[in-house]
Design a protein around this nucleic acid. Structure first.
Length: 139
DNA sequence: GCCAACGTTGGC
DNA sequence: GCCAACGTTGGC
C-alpha cells in the first residue's frame, strides 16, 4: 500500500464535505496539473491519503482511502485529465498544522514542505507514521 | 494583500 | 526549442 496527500481549500471542498459523501466517496476532480494527475494515475484502490486543508487552516485533518483508480474527470471533456475517487476513513483526533510539520526535523523532506503548490503528493511510510502520531490517530 | 514559486502559453 | 510574459497557488 502507498500513501498520498490530497490538498483542498476548505471553502471549495472541505473534510466535512468529504465525510458527508460517506463510504460512496467522491471524485477528486478539477485537477489541471500534470504532476498531480500523474500521482493519481499511480494510485491503487486501498491506498491511504491525508486530507489537507490549505489557505486559512493549513493542517492535515483526516485520513482518506482511494476507492476507485484513475478514470476520466467528469468535470471536463478534455481527455488529458483523470482523477480517482476517495472516501473519508477517519478524522484526526487533533489536526496537524503545517507549522508543526515544519518544526519536525524528520519531516523536513516532505513534499508538503518543499513543493507547496503541488495539490496531490506522495507521502513516505515513515512520514505517514509520524504525522499520524502527531495527530494522535491510528495510521 | 503581497509576493515567491512554479506552470503554461505563445512569439520568435 | 527557447524564453519572456503571464496566470495561479498558497504561505505569510
Amino acid at each position: 500500500m502507498r500513501y498520498w496527500l490530497f490538498k483542498s481549500e476548505p471553502s471549495t471542498w472541505s473534510w466535512d464535505d468529504q465525510v458527508a459523501k460517506g463510504d460512496e466517496g467522491e471524485e477528486w476532480d478539477g485537477v489541471r496539473n500534470y504532476q498531480a494527475r500523474n500521482m493519481m494515475r499511480e494510485m491503487a484502490a486501498g491506498d491511504r491519503g491525508f486530507f489537507y486543508h490549505s489557505q486559512s487552516e493549513k493542517a492535515v485533518v483526516g485520513i482518506v482511502e482511494v476507492i476507485a483508480e484513475a478514470h476520466p474527470d467528469s468535470t471536463t471533456d478534455d481527455p488529458r485529465w483523470d482523477c480517482v475517487d476517495i472516501r473519508a476513513v477517519r478524522p484526526f483526533a487533533r489536526p496537524v498544522t503545517l507549522a508543526e510539520i515544519k518544526e519536525e526535523p524528520r519531516l523536513a523532506e516532505m513534499v508538503l514542505v518543499n513543493n507547496t503548490r503541488l495539490s496531490v503528493q506522495p507521502v513516505t511510510e515513515e512520514e505517514w507514521r509520524i504525522v499520524c502520531e502527531m495527530g494522535r490517530t491510528a495510521p
